[in-house]
Amino acid sequence: MTEVPVPYQVVRRSQETTDTTTLVVEPVARALPPFRPGQFAMIYAFGVGEIPVSVSGILDHRHRLAHTVRAVGAVSAAVCAAAEGQELGLRGPFGTGWELERAAGGDVLVVAGGIGLAPLRPLIRAALAGAGRYRRLNLLAGARTPDDLLYADELRCLADAAPAHVAVTVDRPGHGWLGSVGMVTQLLNRADFAPGETTAFVCGPEAMIRATARDLRHRGVPADRIRVSLERNMRCATGHCGHCQLGPLLLCRDGPVAGYDRVAPLLAVREL
């Protein structure tokens, strides 16, 4: 059925950075089916348009969802500007999830660049909640500047959590930044994980995904254990608009999360 957006109300908003906002939304009446980490919703800003946005939080309370949105254009700016109490329309859940279960018994390695941390946040929470089922949990995050780092407080708390190792790097350090500077791939060298028993979950700009996956392969992580989340233009999310093609994949249906074994040859072709 051609589903129409279901009204959700903004119950809390927090400004993450100058251009990025996290909204917690809750269904006004009917709730959408449950989302899994890595899946996305189509968010409708009334009178402006609809955009794909991953879930950045899946809450038990009142079927609430969190979305972290960076304002880059008309619709994302309108979503970011939604006030508490305002209604948005949501469709979903769409796409493949991260499938954290794949990492059971081994190490979990999360690598995020910029807004790419948003879809990984529910995965990290699930990994912490399932501690014991996984060995080491490494979270490596990159941002343009220290001010662009998402969920800074949460990352600090996480760094204190027993099984988690958190490392952050920025492209351009500001005053007072004592941490790493440079590409997120540099953090890989210092992270403690057993490549053969690691499942990596990667999201960020495509160049960062390529570089990270390449380095992980060099370190010996099997290609099918490198799970990447990709982005393409999307108009419908139901497999009918044709915009989200990446070679044989329709990323709204066969993605956004896919194994690097599947996508490596596709990402190697320019302008595919």
């Binding site: 589903e3 957006p5 009204p7 006004v28 009334f46 209604e87």
Partner: peptide, 17 residues
């Protein structure tokens, strides 16, 4: 046309296919 949406004075959305 896929759907029509209306917003009432309280900001409530009604979206019909």
């Amino acid at each position: 046309r896929q759907w029509s949406a209306d917003r009432d004075p309280d900001g409530q959305l009604t979206i019909v296919p």
